[in-house]
Amino acid sequence: MLAVGLTTTVASLPLLTAPTALAAACTVLRRSIREDRPVGVGEYVAEFRAHGLRRVLLVGVAVFAAVTLVLLDLALAGAGLPVARPMSWALTALAAAGLVVALRAAADPEVARGWVPALNRALTRSVTDPAGCALIATAVGLCVAFLWMLLLLALLLPGPLAFAVTAVEARGERAQGDADTGD
Rank of each mutant, 00 (worst) to 15 (best):
I136N: 00
P109F: 02
G141K: 06
V59A: 15
P130C: 08
D178C: 04
G5F: 04
R30F: 06
L16G: 04
L94I: 01
P160S: 06
A21I: 01
A23S: 15
A122K: 05
T9H: 12
A170M: 14
R54F: 12
F146M: 15
V28Y: 05
L16R: 00
D129L: 04
A23R: 03
S126F: 15
L53K: 00
A66F: 13
L69P: 08
G98E: 08
G114P: 08
L150Y: 10
A170S: 12
L57C: 14
Y44M: 11
C26S: 14
W115M: 08
A90V: 09
D180P: 03
T68V: 12
L2I: 06
R34F: 05
A75F: 06
G177T: 09
D180Q: 04
A139D: 10
V28I: 00
G114S: 10
G60K: 09
A50M: 06
G141E: 00
A112C: 12
R34E: 14
L74W: 12
A75H: 05
P158E: 09
A118W: 05
A118H: 03
V4T: 04
A131W: 13
A131S: 13
T166V: 04
T8V: 12
A66E: 11
P38R: 03
A122D: 11
L58N: 07
R49Y: 06
R174C: 03
G159D: 02
G159C: 07
M87E: 12
A24Q: 02
V63L: 13
L69A: 15
L74E: 11
L69Q: 08
R34H: 10
P109A: 12
T128S: 14
R104Y: 05
A145I: 04
A179H: 09
G159S: 09
A139V: 02
A145G: 13
G182N: 03
G60Q: 10
A23H: 08
L152A: 15
R49Q: 14
T17S: 15
L15M: 13
D180L: 11
F64G: 11
T20N: 11
A3I: 02
G182I: 00
D178G: 03
L150W: 14
V165E: 01
R55Y: 02
T8A: 15
F146C: 15
L157N: 05
L161S: 08
V70A: 15
L2E: 03
G141F: 08
P14V: 01
G42Q: 04
L152F: 12
W148V: 01
G98A: 07
E169N: 09
T27P: 00
P19T: 07
A65S: 14
P160W: 08
T20H: 11
P160G: 05
A93F: 10
